[in-house]
Design a protein around this nucleic acid. Sequence first.
DNA 1: CGGCGCCTTGAATAATATCAACGATAGTGG
DNA 2: CCACTATCGTTGATATTATTCAAGGCGCCG
Lengths: 240, 240
Amino acid sequence: MTTALASKQLPLRMKASFPIAVVAKAKAPSPASADKQATGLDELGTAHVVPRGKTVAEEGTPAEYVFKIVSGAFRVVRLLPDGRRSVIDFLLPGDYFGLAENGTYSHSLEVISDASFIRYPKGQLRHLLDSDPRASRRFFNLMCEQLSAAQGRLLMLSRKSAVERIASFILAMADRSQRKNGAIKLPMNRADVADYLGLTIETVSRTLSQLRADKVIELPTACQIVLRDRDRLAAISGDN
Amino acid sequence: MTTALASKQLPLRMKASFPIAVVAKAKAPSPASADKQATGLDELGTAHVVPRGKTVAEEGTPAEYVFKIVSGAFRVVRLLPDGRRSVIDFLLPGDYFGLAENGTYSHSLEVISDASFIRYPKGQLRHLLDSDPRASRRFFNLMCEQLSAAQGRLLMLSRKSAVERIASFILAMADRSQRKNGAIKLPMNRADVADYLGLTIETVSRTLSQLRADKVIELPTACQIVLRDRDRLAAISGDN
DNA sequence: CGGCGCCTTGAATAATATCAACGATAGTGG
DNA sequence: CCACTATCGTTGATATTATTCAAGGCGCCG
């Protein structure tokens, strides 16, 4: 509860200096048929730049768009009526949001670090999927990956201890995230990690401190992690 | 751990009287093109009958088939190396298994109550998806539903208390499951429920007892639940 | 330099797991 | 058909883990 309310609305100093802006408008829409592009999708979307803290899509509002992350980092958030928060996923460049959202968004999409994305009208995407087998196949595979990832997290949340979750998380971020001279750079804060792993801020912090004390990781800053003993981290994580 | 090992292999007395059997072999395979069927898929599969306790697909083995449940109930199971178990989903008639499984199965599919299913070679299904937009769309929507369901469960596992999980579970089963004169008939045992909700057998049992004591439900038998106060159950469940 | 978030750490509490015993039930074999 | 037995379910006592409450420190930005 504390976690949820604390992180519900990040009071970021959002000067108007960095508003949502259409940065590039694509060429004239073509009757999605003879495509040479990877997906034939690119020309349907508009590019946008957004500042940290911005909510790009809001839970409960009509799901009109699908988003493709270009740069930066996002969190996918869902709330319980009493305010408890769950971070369903973190999105990084190349990831999509909204593919499975039907009618209204069941999640909010929030910007963690200054970011940009391409936004596609859902109707047009649907049409493309119906008419272009290549795109259809591509997005079907994307859905498969998302589902697999979600199922992996179900196992984690239902059966893993706090250290195991943290270890798994660090290893996953090590693969996905940016590096800054050897250190993994976490774009999210402790509250986000906590709500992603189903823990509290305090437990996340304590567990990281413990891993540091055990010389498995180093923490140059709060949002940087250096792997000191990857094998042991993998052993702690519990899988394989 | 106790839970996992206890329920890892149900020592059901499996007399040879009820083996897997091909019950119906479909007509000659057609070059999936001019389909009149709902999905054009039916003729690709073979029907099978399986007894309780049987493992129909095993985690780690090549994912050659997709399954459509016809009757009975199944659990989708994933194990941690040390034996801890998670029930990722329960499958009832109309549900599919294996759509997102790539290369090798990342879950086992186990029969909870005597059941039957149709099995489709994955390669042929893929081919159908590539060639038939109707089928493609249908299965894309199925994947969307599965993903949404998984995400809902992520919220539950990461933020809900034991009572809330049990209440949500009962309400969900009330919609999906069979009835037996007014009572919801659970096909699974306590260990399955526990591993599905990320709890222990004992906590599941205690929580159900407590709900009974509070006159929210009745438990005519261990596997039957009568809703006595659906509104209160919904309130307890936490969502909406 | 000052203030505000964010992070860390400690101590007490609450929730759930674990250990253990008993009870109920259903399927088996006599 | 009944009694037996294995399995499953319930309940109690205790242990453990993570949460909650509280305070202080660090770092960043203005």
